[in-house]
Amino acid sequence: MVENIVWHEASVTKEQRQQKTNQKSAIFWFTGLSASGKSTLANAFNRALFDSNIASYVLDGDNIRHGLNNDLGFDEESRKENIRRIGEVAKLFVDSGQVVLTAFISPYIADRQTVRELVEADEFIEVYVKASVDACAKRDPKGLYEKAKRGEIPNFTGVSAPYEAPEQPEIIIDTEKYSIEECVEQLMTYLKER
Rank of each mutant, 00 (worst) to 15 (best):
F30Q: 03
Y57S: 07
I125H: 13
F93L: 12
E117S: 10
R85I: 07
E120H: 13
E76D: 13
E126C: 03
G67D: 10
R85C: 04
A131I: 11
S56N: 15
I86F: 01
S39R: 13
T102L: 06
V133A: 14
N63V: 15
L41W: 13
N46E: 15
A55Q: 13
T114D: 13
T31F: 02
D111T: 13
G32R: 06
I105L: 10
N43F: 07
E88G: 00
G32P: 04
D122A: 06
R84C: 02
E126Y: 04
G67T: 13
C136W: 07
I86L: 14
I83L: 09
A44Y: 11
I64P: 06
S39T: 15
K91L: 03
Y108S: 06
K38W: 13
A135R: 10
S34A: 12
F93P: 03
A90F: 01
A42S: 15
V89S: 06
G87R: 05
L92H: 00
I54W: 02
S34F: 00
E126G: 00
S52D: 14
C136L: 11
T114G: 10
G67P: 03
T31I: 04
S36Q: 08
V127P: 08
E120R: 09
K38C: 14
A42H: 01
D60H: 10
D111L: 03
L49K: 03
T40K: 09
I83R: 08
L101N: 07
K80Y: 12
Q113Y: 06
A35Y: 08
V115A: 08
I83F: 08
A44C: 11
S52Q: 08
D111F: 07
V58K: 08
S34Y: 07
K91C: 02
N70V: 00
F104V: 11
K80T: 09
F93A: 01
E77N: 13
N43I: 07
N53M: 09
E76R: 14
E117M: 02
V129N: 05
K91P: 01
S78R: 02
K130Y: 09
S36K: 12
R84M: 08
V99L: 12
A90I: 00
A110K: 15
D62N: 14
A55M: 01
V58S: 09
E76N: 14
T102V: 15
Y128T: 06
R79E: 01
I83W: 04
D75F: 11
L33I: 11
G37K: 02
A103W: 12
N53K: 12
S52K: 09
V133Y: 09
G87V: 11
G61R: 08
R84H: 07
R112A: 02
I54N: 01
V94H: 00
S132F: 00
A48D: 08
D60Y: 10
F45P: 12
S36Y: 12
T40F: 07
F45E: 04
E88K: 12
L101A: 05
N63F: 10
A103C: 11
V89H: 01
R112T: 02
E76K: 14
L118A: 05
K91A: 09
T114R: 12
G32K: 03
T102P: 05
L33V: 04
L59A: 07
Y108H: 00
V127E: 09
N53A: 08
